[in-house]
Design a protein around this nucleic acid. Structure first.
Length: 519
RNA sequence: GGCCCGUUCGUCUAGCGGUUUAGGACACCGCCCUCUCAAGGCGGAGAUCACGGGUUCGAAUCCCGUACGGGCUACCA
């Protein structure tokens, strides 16, 4: 392998066509290309295959680039970065395809086909029903030279087809993932290289580009496995060196069908918007079809780049498992640390309008300023939810109670369940007295120690009181840790919330008494 | 129809002829911890390695069929 890399520098490319967003499958192909390039000290190229004018848009191209960047991939040549083998948009490379065609024409390796698409479709239809379809019937290949030149000079539209050799061995290539693949030459037909409108077909353009860009390894989805022999024939006609191929299996939805819109989010940006971290998505995608050692699930991009190899890429299609992605994401949240977490969470706080020091919904600017001015306070949130939030989207609602000021809306169910016991008003009053004491240092350990005395003295279970306090402070019977929350909310607001809860509790106690006391 | 490819717990995978009573992870279940929820710890259930034939002293691993799934079979990419 080392020897090989000395002989031929590793150059790989990711070549999406901008007919849609960057989706899960494309992203994984990009990741493997990138990781392989980094592993081999090679070059990673981004090339946009926008030859389909009907479906390609600049917006899609921009979105693909944005998604790739967001994932943390960087390319050495391509849009935005340039390179010596550009341009990197196929629509800007048409002259190269023209030159290649000319070369083929001059060497009688290609011939004009005047059959119309309609004729071909009809012929294909009838051949198919006879169950022996083997591609184009080569009728135009046998036209006599005079007729051809006459029709050509008359300007009759024609496509240019590759003039396959009459005799050829079966096509054999070594796929880096699948191993040796053999396709009978009898299956090959005279494929079209250039359409009647002058545009190159995918197979032709890909070969010319990969060759011109000196691509050493073509790493792509296995929907191209069947295109490979055709492309090899083009390489051979042009006298070009055939690169190494590595095909990647598809990614399936939970129903075992090819991943598509029906399965919900498939675009990379949709995952970003659902609160997944790019590092986690990258990790999960890398894991979906590749293994580091069979045991390790969590690894950094750097580890990926240091260890990637085709030998560990699996051949069978993988089913996308959102549960596992979510788990990977949650482990990244747990390990990312307060600083990175708050950075990542900032947009979410902005859109939720959560700013420390501002009651009610704040605007994005206020949130930004608040975070800047109260960085320590914000970072103190992290340990409260690091083990609880599975995504960034989870996190904001989870901590919104910290931003509610003195007025907190309490969940009705939680109120009924946790504030209705007869002892609650008195217990809460005791808490208020304790917390109102200025000599109590406002720190969660001290707060906890002080409050634990209350149920002990009253002879009730700690849980009874703390659930009531939780509802008072957090508004819900399920919440992040209580004493840390009290600390973060601050003495005045905490006291205000406790007072309000105590009032609520006494009204419930009264009404309960009304109901239960026989008249 | 033809050609190509694939098939190990529900899911992702380890496994490259003997170290395998098939290992890990997610999900699931139970217990512990505990101020709730999580997290964490411990344990459990879950795969006759698609099926059938070979080869071999020995096969999840090699070969051949079959079934199922996917791809290609375009003047789409």
């Amino acid at each position: 392998m080392d020897k090989l890399s000395i002989e031929k520098p590793v150059r790989v490319r990711f070549a999406p066509s901008p007919t849609g967003f960057l989706h899960i499958g494309g992203a994984r192909t990009a990741i493997y290309n990138w990781a392989f390039a980094r592993r081999m000290g090679g070059t990673f190229i981004l090339r946009i295959e926008d030859t389909d004018p009907e479906r390609s848009t600049p917006e899609n191209t921009a979105q693909i680039i944005r998604s790739l960047r967001w994932l943390g991939l960087d390319w050495d040549e391509g849009p935005e970065v340039g390179g010596d083998f550009g341009p990197y948009l196929q629509t800007e490379r048409f002259s190269t395809y023209g030159m290649a065609l000319k070369h083929l024409q001059e060497n009688d390796l290609v011939y004009p086909c005047f059959c119309t698409p309609e004729e071909l479709a009809a012929r294909r239809e009838s051949a198919l029903s006879k169950q022996d379809f083997h591609g184009y019937d080569r009728s135009c290949r046998h036209l006599n030279a005079d007729e051809v030149s006459a029709r050509l000079t008359a300007g009759e539209p024609c496509a240019w087809r590759l003039k396959l050799p009459l005799e050829h061995d079966d096509i054999v290539f070594d796929d880096a993932v699948y191993g040796q693949i053999t396709v009978p030459f009898s299956e090959m037909d005279d494929l079209i290289c250039v359409r009647s409108d002058g545009s190159p077909t995918y197979n032709f353009a890909a070969v010319i580009d990969d060759s011109n860009m000196q691509v050493s390894h073509v790493i792509r989805g296995d929907d191209h496995l069947s295109n490979t022999p055709k492309q090899i024939l083009i390489y051979e006609a042009l006298g070009l060196e055939v690169p190494t191929f590595a095909h990647l299996s598809m990614i399936l939805g939970a129903d075992g069908k090819r991943l598509s819109k029906r399965h919900g989010a498939t675009s990379i940006e949709a995952y970003r918007d659902e609160g997944y971290l790019s590092e986690a998505l990258l990790n999960y995608l890398a894991l979906l079809g590749w293994s580091l050692d069979g045991k390790t699930d969590i690894f950094s991009a750097q580890t990926l780049c240091e260890n990637f190899s085709f030998g560990r890429v699996s051949k069978n299609p993988a089913t996308f498992d959102n549960d596992k992605l979510t788990w990977v994401n949650s482990t990244y949240i747990k390990e990312m640390g307060a600083r990175a977490f708050i950075d990542a969470l900032t947009p979410w706080l902005e859109s939720a309008g959560l700013a420390y020091g501002i009651d009610g919904k704040a605007n994005a600017e206020q949130v930004k300023d608040s975070i800047q001015d109260n960085r320590d306070w914000y970072e103190a949130i992290y340990p409260l939810i690091a083990e609880r939030a599975k995504t960034l989207a989870d996190a904001a609602p989870m901590v919104s109670y910290l931003f509610s000021g003195s007025e907190l809306e309490m969940d009705e169910k939680s109120v009924q369940k946790c504030l209705s016991a007869a002892e609650i008003p008195n217990l809460l009053e005791s808490c208020i007295t304790i917390l109102d004491n200025p000599s109590l240092e406002w720190q969660h350990n001290n707060i906890e120690a002080a409050l634990r005395a209350v149920p002990e003295v009253a002879g009730v279970k700690p849980k009874l009181l703390f659930q009531a306090v939780r509802v008072a402070i957090c508004g819900n019977m399920v919440s992040p840790p209580l004493f840390e929350s009290i600390e973060l909310i601050g003495r005045n607001k905490a006291l205000a919330r406790l007072k309000k809860a105590a009032e609520t509790a006494s009204t419930i106690a009264v009404s309960v008494k009304d109901v239960t006391t026989p008249s």
